[in-house]
């Protein structure tokens, strides 16, 4: 991955107001793989009794991470949007712990990217959630397929 593509992908993440509002941090991005994490935040709680983060916050993390993985793909997409995303919630994230999503763009065609993502809290052995999604791929006019 060239420096310019790295920079483009980082800009893509850091210019997203909602990613900023949720405190998302881009930990790693390279060749169709991305890692994005966010701190536990009381504003994002979905179940007041247990203090567990809302599923919707985890899906936003996975969606952003999926988009980042697509942007970092070696074929150099210039833009992307989610077509669909399915999220399986395996267990509640432990309150107080950081949530980290890892996404992999495992196949791309000229116009579609297929993505898998997994989310963990600080226990990296037991996933919190997993997702699969399809994303659009925008390409520069005249760019290679």
């Amino acid at each position: 991955m060239t420096d310019q593509m790295q920079r483009l992908a980082r800009q893509f993440i850091e210019s997203i107001p909602y990613a900023r509002a949720m405190g998302m941090v881009l930990d790693r991005i390279e060749d169709g793989r991305a890692t994005i994490s966010m701190a536990y935040d009381a504003r994002l709680v979905g179940d007041p009794e247990s203090g567990v983060i809302h599923g919707g916050a985890v899906s936003a993390l996975m969606d952003t991470c999926g988009g980042a993985a697509v942007m970092s793909h070696p074929t150099g997409p210039t833009g992307t949007a989610t077509i669909d995303l399915r999220i399986d919630y395996m267990r509640p994230a432990t309150p107080g712990q950081r949530i980290t999503a890892r996404a992999e763009c495992y196949h791309v065609t000229r116009s579609v990217a297929f993505v898998r993502a997994t989310a963990f809290d600080e226990d990296s052995a037991r996933p919190v959630a997993s997702a699969t999604g399809a994303f659009t791929v925008e390409r520069a006019a005249g760019g290679k397929p």
């Binding site: 997203i16 599923g55 919707g56 899906s59 936003a60 969606d63 949007a81």
Partner: peptide
């Protein structure tokens, strides 16, 4: 943001 849309639906 797609994550906002997903969260809104959920």
């Amino acid at each position: 943001h797609g994550g906002v849309t997903a969260a809104f639906l959920e």
